[in-house]
Amino acid sequence: MANFADNRVSLAGYGSIVGTARSAVSGGACLVDVAGIRITARVIAGLTVAAGDALLITRSLSTYFVQAVLQANPNTPPAPPEQGPDETPEVPSGDDAPDPKPTITGGTLLILPVATSTWRDGRWRTDVGSPTNTDTYQGRYSGSAHGRNTGVAFYGSRPRSIEGAKVTKATLRLRRLSGGDFAARAPTLRLVTQSTPQFNEPTLNETGAGPRLKPNQSISKFEIPKSWAQAMVDGTRGGIAMTVNSDSPYLKFAGRASWSAAWALTISWRRGS
């Protein structure tokens, strides 16, 4: 029978230890598991050992000796002592421990648009710059022979990086540029299905009012409906447009090329379990 005594961890210094028999006695020894270590232990002559028995073991140098077979614990606990006439049973005090608090994670996700584009006359405008870095326009310039403009900020796949989270707040960073009249005007905002520019006209959905800004005025935290950002996190919407069903107000807002923070979307979110 192989000796596994020193294969893993030394048990020296443990004194008397308790192990579990893994074999019957053969050749005066048996296999025993002690603290996850399998060893070979000599058995005192006349001692009967069966697999599964709890054994009391001692060690001398590198040799282990089975001293006794320990009795198993009783199947039922002993009866409590009888209560005397003047004794009062102990009553537990206090409420039960509260349920553990759920683990909640959350944070803030800053999303810069992957493209800012303006759709007009059946195509993305290139006369004002790259079709993915243009400023965003709304309406039609007075006297222009061209059609109405729809400016769009596309956010790509980044909102879905927190898919499954609950949006608690969402804000936009916007800057109005010179264009149109000099009064404070608010764009009409629409949610867009697509997350990047396609060859066809963007699909417009939910509608809301944007911030009232004068030319060259900015706003760093314009709050949009939480449901809008939630739709982008869930993957059913991909961008935000500025558009109007009439020619006015004609507005021009900064895109990526003229302002690095243009249309930046900040989403506050939380996730609970």
Rank of each mutant, 00 (worst) to 15 (best):
V192E: 08
P78V: 15
N133G: 07
T150G: 12
Q67I: 00
I39F: 05
F182W: 13
M242P: 00
T243D: 14
I219F: 01
T243H: 15
G239V: 06
L112D: 08
S62Q: 03
S62E: 00
W124Q: 05
R140Q: 10
S246E: 13
G106K: 05
T108W: 02
S161H: 07
A261D: 10
P77G: 06
L172I: 02
M1D: 03
V233E: 04
P225E: 04
G179S: 04
A231N: 12
S23D: 02
V244K: 08
G19P: 05
D95C: 13
N3D: 08
W259H: 02
R140G: 11
L61F: 05
L47T: 09
T108G: 08
K221S: 10
I267V: 14
K252E: 11
A97L: 12
A115I: 01
H146I: 09
Q194I: 04
S246D: 15
G129K: 05
P187D: 02
I104Q: 14
T136W: 12
D96C: 08
D121K: 13
P89S: 10
D33R: 13
T150L: 11
F65Y: 08
G139E: 08
N73D: 12
T171N: 02
F4P: 11
P77A: 15
S93K: 13
A41K: 01
F4K: 10
W228I: 00
E206M: 12
A261S: 11
V18M: 09
P159G: 06
R8I: 11
A41T: 00
T20Y: 09
E163M: 12
V69L: 02
A170C: 04
A261I: 00
P187C: 09
F65R: 04
P100T: 12
P77W: 15
L56N: 04
K214V: 04
L174G: 01
V114L: 03
R175E: 00
A29I: 03
A72W: 11
R185N: 11
V114G: 03
W119Q: 09
G36W: 05
V9E: 08
S161P: 01
M1Q: 09
A41L: 04
P77D: 15
N205F: 09
T116D: 07
H146F: 14
A153F: 01
A97N: 10
T118H: 07
A153T: 02
L112G: 07
T203A: 15
P197G: 06
L61K: 06
A261C: 02
Y137S: 13
N216V: 01
D33W: 06
T105I: 11
D96I: 00
V167H: 03
G107T: 02
P98I: 12
P113V: 06
T20Q: 15
T266G: 09
A170I: 01
S273A: 14
A257T: 07
